[in-house]
Write a protein that binds this DNA or RNA. Structure first.
Lengths: 367, 367
DNA sequence: TTGAAAGCGTTACCAA
DNA sequence: TTGGTAACGCTTTCAA
């Protein structure tokens, strides 16, 4: 019966090219003997919908019988709201950056929002491009991990026009106001350094994965300051070239230069602070030249990734915050989108906690 | 804020020319002094577009001056094509499953396709639900990592109606035809076993992370068979409970039972085959009871994840294929969407390569 | 070579 | 309490 009416509609249309067999709101309304408007109101449970229970039931039944599914493109066109949010993040392929997207998508999953992802290669132009592309798609909001440098033209425009957007780690980077979720990197670096000082280490080597990345720079600065305050010598900088966008390139690429560095500077440091990645490789290098970890050299990572907790020698590392960051970003975005966020921008700073593990803990017992 | 502009626009409804603040195709056409139709043709570079160069230029100029951006929702509604593909994968949060999404999104990035992601919790109902939700959004195609069991109702329907869909690892699971990208797990398990046999190991312990997961079961079967063929004893099964959807739960959760198991069965095995995850923990446990790896017990992972290559003791592990799988899935999907895929379904089986590292290599030298 | 008209499926607004 | 009308921004077909 419903097929018949559909066919009739096609024929009446005449010029219609390919008629999709899709069930429309109109079909439901017709079957329920009401107007499309009414069906729309009822099915969307609009607040001021005063349809009688009987009508309501007929509409629901019709929808169920016909297997009606709303066309979200049409809805988006009409309402201007797409029910999608965009996520832009540098090198989606970088596993260490994985947890933010995860937090965001999982938070979104509990609502009816969908997340569309795209990754930039840490250059400003691709950031702008991706933002525009997602706007074209009509996303209702945007979560952006900004590139380390650049004008952030589109991002700024969005923030200034009040478009719902939240940034990750934009705290010390962006020169305009915007909702933001950042990590407390300074405090994190400070607590790392203090932990080492407490262990009796004073000559720290800073094995920074990507020195250009601002998050590394901030941490490095905090470490430097804390050492200075303790009257310890400034950190020895181990600079190993590594791709910005794909952090986990072939480990061997890093291993050789790092081993050379360690051999050359052996005895000049009694602790290493790196990323979980560089720290893992450092341990390997140290063991290769018979330096005992943590007895001779304590090693520390950062971000508490899977490498820290699950590597063969568990790493001391500030706790992961990525997932939490993603969740909160989603929450902020929703508040903006729904309009109950106020004029003030919110900036959330997530504290880290130092997870002490064997790479800095000489005595195995106790916790 | 967006609400505000929407309201304003409707208030100013009437027959006035001014509508939304958004620049539409109509605006461009007006400024260029042509009809919307022409502008559409030109801007989309339609094949049979015979606009004069002069008109064409005027339209381009107008679009640039006005900062025209097409409304993809409208386009989607009109054409029935959304330029989006959906990705459904179990626990997007599982890092070991991360590489497929990455491969897919990166492949998509080079086109104008957007990827909308959602993750299911390995239960059949959520798989169906997510498929329906993405269809509502009008995705042009779907890449699905099916749940380990269940009727796969929606998936089957899609495949049978010819909707562009590609599955991951559906090879031995689905009882209907469908484009698919799978890993050659049998061969992978075989080569793992042979490698161990060649090293002189004969008593293998199989430390399977998630025995329920079919990919683990297939591998286990291959190992068993190969041992049998070599007249070696059947593998000792180490069953440690672990969540299906979040593979990397707290490592400590696994460590205690595993250590107990290893202590109990010490001397009963000279090799362990696990996942990269379980293998890492196993190494830790073995070292705790002064068993040397690989001298006393060789340990092997699988999937060649970051844990394998970058853990403190590099793991022998079959090479990663996830990214490749994602890329190929995207390619297949595009072929279907564009309609040049033929009636036959394609099934791609990606071979793995055993990456031999120190966890099974007694002598450090050479490669 | 360009223009006019007809919707795609939905919802906002007002009239009944 | 329900129905009618007019868009949302775009593309397609056909006529000029």
């Amino acid at each position: 019966m419903s097929k018949l009416t559909a066919r009739k509609a096609t024929e009446r249309r005449g010029k219609g090219r390919r008629k999709t067999s899709r069930v429309t709101l109109e079909d439901v309304a017709r079957r329920a003997g009401v107007h499309g408007t009414t069906a729309s109101q009822v099915l969307n449970g609009r607040a001021n919908c005063w349809a009688s229970d009987e009508t309501r039931q007929r509409i629901f039944d019709a929808a169920r019988d016909l297997g009606y599914r709303p066309n979200l493109s049409a809805q988006a066109l009409r309402t201007g709201r797409s029910g999608m949010i965009g996520l832009i993040s540098p090198g989606f392929g970088v596993r260490s950056q994985h947890s933010r997207p995860v937090g965001l998508t999982e938070a979104a999953a509990s609502t009816s929002y969908a997340v569309t992802v795209s990754s930039h290669s840490n250059d400003s132009e691709s950031e702008d491009l991706l933002i525009r592309q997602l706007l074209d798609r009509g996303v209702d909001g945007l979560a952006v991990y900004p590139t380390d440098s650049g004008p952030h033209t589109e991002l700024r425009r969005l923030a200034q026009t009040g478009f719902p957007v939240v940034t990750f780690e934009g705290a010390n980077l962006l020169d305009f106001d915007c909702d933001d979720v950042s990590t407390d990197l300074k405090k994190s670096g400070r607590s790392q350094t203090r932990h080492l000082l407490r262990l009796g280490c004073r000559r720290v080597c800073f094995a920074n994965g990507v020195p250009e990345a601002r998050i590394n720079a901030i941490r490095a600065e905090a470490v430097r300051r804390e050492l200075q305050r303790a009257k310890a010598p400034p950190p020895l900088e181990m600079r190993i070239p590594i791709s910005t966008t794909c952090e986990f390139t072939d480990a061997d690429l890093m291993e050789k230069p790092m081993r050379a560095f360690i051999r050359k500077h052996l005895g000049e440091f009694d602790a290493i602070i790196g990323t979980d990645f560089t720290a893992s490789i450092a341990i390997r290098c140290l063991q290769a030249v018979d330096v005992r970890v943590p007895h001779d050299v304590a090693v520390m990572g950062c971000e508490d990734s899977i490498l820290a907790s699950h590597g063969s020698l568990p790493l001391t590392s500030p706790s992961a915050i990525g997932q939490l960051a993603g969740e909160n970003a989603f929450r902020m975005l929703m508040a903006r989108i729904r309009g109950d966020a106020g004029r003030q921008f919110s900036r959330l700073v997530i504290p880290t906690r130092l997870m002490v593990r064997q790479s800095t803990r000489p005595n195995k017992g106790g916790d």
